[in-house]
Design a binder for these strands. Sequence first.
DNA 1: GCCATGGCTAGTA
DNA 2: GCCATGGCTAGTA
Length: 106
Amino acid sequence: MNRIEFTEEVIALIRAIPPGKVTTYGQIAAMAGHPRNTRGVVWILHACSESDDLPWFRVVNQAGRISLSPGQGHARQKALLEAEGVQFDRQGRIELRRYLWSPVAL
DNA sequence: GCCATGGCTAGTA
DNA sequence: GCCATGGCTAGTA
C-alpha cells in the first residue's frame, strides 16, 4: 500500500465515523492496515481538517482526550463534539467505553 | 529534527 | 516520564 492509498483509506474511515461517536489515531491507522503509522494519521488530519467535509473533530487520542493544545483549536473541537452529545468529565476526558466507534466491518 | 501517538518501566507507599 | 515509532507533509515562491 502506498501513501495515496493509505491517505484515501484514512479519509474514508474518518468519514465513516457516525455523529456522536469518536475513534482514536491508532485505531484508524490499524484499520487502514498500518498499525504503527499513527503519525501519518495525524498529518492527514492536519492537512485536511479544514477542507473536504471531514469530521476531523471525531478523532481523539487513546486516553479519550483531545490532543490539540489550547489555542490550537482545543476549545473548538470540544464544542463540536459536545454539540453532538458527547460528554466530557471534569478532567476533559471522554468515556471511550461509551463513545468509541467500533466498526462491524472486517 | 519534527510531532494533534502509544506503550511501558522504575520506584514508591 | 521516557522512548520507539514513521514519514518527510503543515498551501509558499
